[in-house]
Design a protein around this nucleic acid. Structure first.
Length: 307
DNA sequence: CCCGGAACCTGAAGGC
DNA sequence: TGCCTTCAGGTTCCGG
């Protein structure tokens, strides 16, 4: 699932191939991939334009054009494959769900794969139409510990839900939120506004560390993600809790548990990330029934499959 | 306003 | 063996 480190890797890999190139054509195999505007107008806005820059904002990939912007979002299963001139894509494309193909003037073809078809593209004059509501970039200098403290203080929902809220902080998804909370030794269902100053400080360091590590590993290939050159990322090899259900915690050996937060599976170590019960009851705005259910869920591993 | 949950979507995996 | 159900999670929308 492309999150900040994966999209950053896609951007870095694609940069030398697309900047300065003109988009000669687009094959829209599934026009539902276009979010805005309508597909015919989308093509009119993009075809013939020259790519002058490539940027990332949160999980969005932004092609800066000589006029306007082409923006892509991979959602869960989207990925891009760049096929340079003289290469044969037949084998790579076999059996894959190709949603669109961009043809560049250097005879490079950019394939937008998406197994589940939730990925989207936009053609807009002002990129803020698409990314304007995103929270701060967690790796930028203006994302300070005080900024994080202010964001967390605004939310009484579980800290895990705040970390993955794109309007609170941009770019963090399920995997890196779990990893950051583990590194900070914070239980995912702790209400965000109830975190201590010490916990916020640890979380700040952890967020930046796990994202930097993800970029250094060129993204996590846990599902369908691969790099534009076709290779896999390595970041998932360093994961300590994400997607490691019932495997031993690398710190204490306790089996990793999984709890649902906002209908998202959250992996954590029950020993290293203990829940402070009174904190939850006092600071959580959720109905008492939901709180009790969460507490119960936390203590009991709710998973039907056997180890 | 804020929160939780459903819908969108398809393929993998588990249960019977 | 094969069909059916469940689950995966980023985003948006709706209802309490």
């Amino acid at each position: 699932m492309p999150e900040l480190p994966e999209v950053e890797t896609i951007k870095n890999d694609l940069l030398p191939l697309v900047v300065g190139r003109t988009i000669e054509g687009i094959e829209l195999i599934e026009s539902s991939i276009v979010s805005t505007p309508r597909p015919d107008e989308f093509l009119r806005r993009i075809i013939g334009r020259t790519v002058t820059g490539l940027e990332r904002r949160g999980k969005y990939l932004i092609f800066r054009l000589d006029k306007g912007y082409l923006i892509m979002h991979m959602r869960m299963t989207g990925s891009l494959l760049a096929v340079p001139a003289g290469s044969d894509a037949t084998e790579a494309v076999r059996g894959a769900r190709v949603r669109a193909i961009l043809d560049l003037d250097n005879d490079t073809h950019l394939y937008f794969f998406d197994r589940r078809g939730l990925g989207k593209m936009w053609a807009v004059g002002d990129k803020e139409e698409v990314v304007g509501r995103l929270g701060p970039e967690p790796l930028q200098p203006d994302f300070t510990p005080d900024v994080l403290k202010g964001i967390l203080a605004l939310h009484r929902s579980p800290v895990k839900a705040v970390l993955t809220d794109q309007q609170a902080i941009a770019g963090i998804g399920n995997m890196y939120a779990d990893e950051a909370l583990f590194e900070a030794r914070i239980n995912p269902i702790t209400p965000a506004s109830k975190l201590s100053a010490e916990q916020v400080g640890r979380l700040y360091v952890a967020i930046r560390q796990v994202l930097q590590s993800g970029i250094a590993g060129r993204g996590a290939s846990v599902d369908t993600y691969f790099r534009p050159g076709g290779g896999l990322g390595q970041a998932h090899l360093k994961f300590k809790v994400a997607h490691r259900f019932r495997k031993p915690c690398p710190v204490c050996g306790t089996p990793i548990e999984r709890v649902m937060v906002r209908n998202r599976g959250s992996y954590f170590c029950p020993h290293c990330q203990p829940l402070i019960k009174y904190t939850l009851e006092e600071g959580d705005s959720a109905p008492r029934k939901v709180v009790q259910k969460r507490l119960k869920t936390h203590r009991v591993v709710v998973q039907s499959n056997q180890p």
